[in-house]
Nucleic acid binder design. Structure first.
Lengths: 177, 177
DNA sequence: AAATTACGTCAGCCATGTTGACTTATTTCG
DNA sequence: CGAAATAAGTCAACATGGCTGACGTAATTT
């Protein structure tokens, strides 16, 4: 039961031993990703509940805070949800004064997104909570190990999405700064 | 960035750059975790849809496959969901012949969970899909780097949960095998 | 014998995702 | 210039997967 999984026959351009070693670690990591993410996302929940928000609001607030002037279309492409799903949470964030929308200067069809002071404060508080967990997980890690973690997460992302993530988060296409 | 905002109203002045400088490596990883998990969980979706299953079914199937004879209470504690939520997906998995429940020998109140052959086949297929992604992300990583990734994910988990995860996944409390 | 435990289930609610259809304003292009 | 494309918003209906609360049954523990 639960032995080494096969790496898949279409993994090209890698030596058999390298793939095998990678596959051995893969099963553990599948489970670790589940547990890690399960706990990671819970950090912000109580802080969000104060305003009647959920995780969907958190994601929107986060990306607008990190990318002032973000266009709605770009946000949809980041979150990979539909316009209608975004519409609901975005409206609530605007109604409660955490986000404002401004007409684009160059293109007046656009409604560029910005956080308010209030929104910025909440976004930072949420980032502080999650950042604390991440920082604790990295305290004993050497710089090379931190890079290895970042590179791994970066390479888990769909290849065609990596360019976008690099631009948003500000590190290179190889996962390094 | 801030110059785009022109006449400042209540739009927060210091956003992305200041935050980034303040928080270091943790901030990148918060975003990377979002993107990585977003893509990671999508791998299995089409395979699950064939049987009318969703991600909740996947999680149940996975942990039962990895832990034959799992008790319902233990599964609840792993997934951190309620008995009622589990009940729905578990019933569907049983009805469709992917999981069977057996009365416990020592304690006949227990309904121990096992996958059927069919369930095992689906579980492995899903693991293959996700494992392939993980394996590809690790092909160029050295053993020490793979350990660093595992250790990081392990330490993201709530401290009081780590013992349970160690026992389930079979590596030590330090995140190493 | 009573209390606790393991499990299941009914009923209703909420958050967040989906499709499909349609509108409005604006920009781009032939 | 006029047609087509684009950016954004909205209505309606529905699916998934969480939640709480209340109860029931069988088996075990005290």
């Amino acid at each position: 039961m639960a032995d080494v999984i096969s790496a898949g026959d279409d993994v090209a351009a890698a030596s058999a031993p390298a793939l095998e070693a990678a596959s051995g670690a893969a099963y553990d990591i599948i489970e670790l990703l589940f547990f890690a993410y399960r706990d990671f996302v819970r950090d912000a929940d109580e802080a969000l509940a104060v305003y009647g928000f959920g995780r969907a609001h958190h994601r929107v607030l986060h990306f607008v805070d990190r990318n002032p002037g973000l266009r709605v279309t770009e946000l949809l492409d980041i979150l990979k949800i539909t316009k209608q799903s975004l519409g609901r949470v975005l409206r609530e964030l605007v109604d409660k004064g955490f986000i404002v929308q401004r007409e684009g200067e160059a293109d007046r069809r656009q409604r560029l997104l910005y956080v308010t002071d209030r929104g910025d404060r909440l976004a930072r508080e949420l980032a502080r909570l999650q950042g604390r967990r991440v920082a604790r997980a990295l305290v004993d890690a050497e710089p090379a190990e931190r890079d290895a973690v970042k590179r791994f997460l970066f390479e888990i992302i769909d290849p065609e999405e990596r360019g976008k993530v690099s631009r948003l988060s500000g590190f290179g296409a190889d996962g390094r700064r």
